[in-house]
Amino acid sequence: MTITRFDTVAHVVSGTFELTVREENGLETHQLTDGRFDLTLE
């Protein structure tokens, strides 16, 4: 995860992420790439 914006005036934090997840049965993995988030802080 990389924070790309932390705005204390607008109360917003944004960033990108990537991760690999394994299925419950443990046989397959899936990659999430180019994930993005924008959150409003209160």
Rank of each mutant, 00 (worst) to 15 (best):
M1V: 03
T2F: 03
T2Y: 03
I3Q: 01
I3E: 08
I3D: 00
T4N: 00
T4F: 00
R5H: 05
R5E: 10
R5P: 01
F6D: 04
F6V: 05
F6E: 06
F6C: 01
F6G: 00
D7T: 02
D7P: 06
D7G: 00
D7N: 04
T8A: 08
T8L: 06
T8P: 07
T8W: 08
V9T: 11
V9G: 08
V9R: 09
A10F: 02
A10Y: 06
H11F: 05
H11D: 09
H11K: 15
H11G: 09
V12G: 08
V12Q: 10
V12Y: 08
V13D: 02
V13R: 07
V13E: 04
S14D: 11
S14R: 07
G15A: 00
F17I: 01
F17T: 03
E18Y: 11
L19H: 07
L19M: 12
T20H: 02
T20S: 13
T20L: 06
T20W: 07
T20C: 05
V21S: 09
V21N: 04
R22N: 13
R22T: 15
R22M: 15
E23G: 14
E24P: 08
E24I: 14
E24N: 10
E24W: 12
E24G: 12
N25P: 00
N25V: 03
N25Q: 11
G26V: 07
G26N: 11
G26C: 12
G26K: 11
G26T: 09
G26P: 05
L27C: 12
L27G: 09
E28C: 14
T29S: 15
Q31Y: 11
Q31T: 12
L32R: 07
L32M: 14
L32S: 08
L32Q: 06
L32E: 01
L32G: 06
T33Y: 14
G35M: 02
G35N: 00
G35C: 00
R36S: 14
R36L: 13
R36Q: 05
F37C: 01
F37G: 01
D38W: 02
D38T: 12
L39F: 15
L39I: 13
T40P: 02
T40R: 14
L41R: 08
L41A: 07
L41T: 09
L41E: 05
L41Y: 08
E42R: 14
E42M: 04
E42N: 13
